[in-house]
Amino acid sequence: MDATTPKFKRKHSNGEKLVAAYWVLGYPSVKESMSIFRTLNEAGADIIEIGYPYSDPVADGETIQDAIQKALTEGVHLDQLWKVSSTIANYSDPFVMTYGNIPFQFGLEAFVEKAKQSGIAGAIFPDLLPEVYPNVLKGIPPAFLISPNTSLERAEFIAQQSQSFIYLITRLGTTGGRNFQDKRLEKLIHSIKSKRNDIPLMVGFGISSQSQAIQAFEQGADGIIVGSELIKKYQTGGKSQVLEFVSELKEVAAQFSGNS
């Protein structure tokens, strides 16, 4: 661990449990999304995932799809991604989450270069499996996804490939809240953590309440990821609801910190 080690990794090695918050850049407008990223900072999100809109987000559920659609009509572009990451990097750790064709068209090397300059601490491309993930792109530490139907053997392989965090999906399907698949999940968590513990194991794709967060931590997760639920909260109660929910999750995380 040195001066360039991102904050979230230090926290993890200190036994702190983490909260990652996802928001779509450009939703509901570019300006408002910038302000929401600030809100996520204020609420203490340890990792802020900047969802960069893609025209065909196959791994996303209804709520995020609609937000992405709206963001695209708002005319979002990559310069805004670099800008917002640089700002976030002062407080928290920005991650970029988008689809593979975006860096492919930008140019992989140029994308990595820009991301580094903007303080981006990690990248999530839900359609780039480790098998097809270009080496150059690993210049931004990748977070690979593991799903409930991934075999234990493959889960270990994916965990080894990940360099920022390990992203465990809690249910079959796209992003958005629904059921946990308890037994299978617990087994996966233990199996992964017994093999790799230097980077956090983050659980996401279904967290919509404090009790689900508690459950995830009880099962051994190092952190949780919220996305769709934040958008829903915003739609019903605005930024203050987003702030409140992330703060609540941070409290839950704090309760579990230090006893990993």
Binding site: V58, A59, G100, P126, D127, L128, L129, E131, V132, F144, L145, I146, S147, N149, T150, S151, R154, I158, I169, L172, G173
Partner: peptide, 19 residues
């Protein structure tokens, strides 16, 4: 064996579909 026709093809898909 990885599904490539030269540089084309492959599996650019979510992990959930991999199994």
């Amino acid at each position: 064996q990885h599904g490539f026709f030269g540089k084309f093809g492959g599996q650019y898909a979510p992990e959930i579909l991999k199994p």
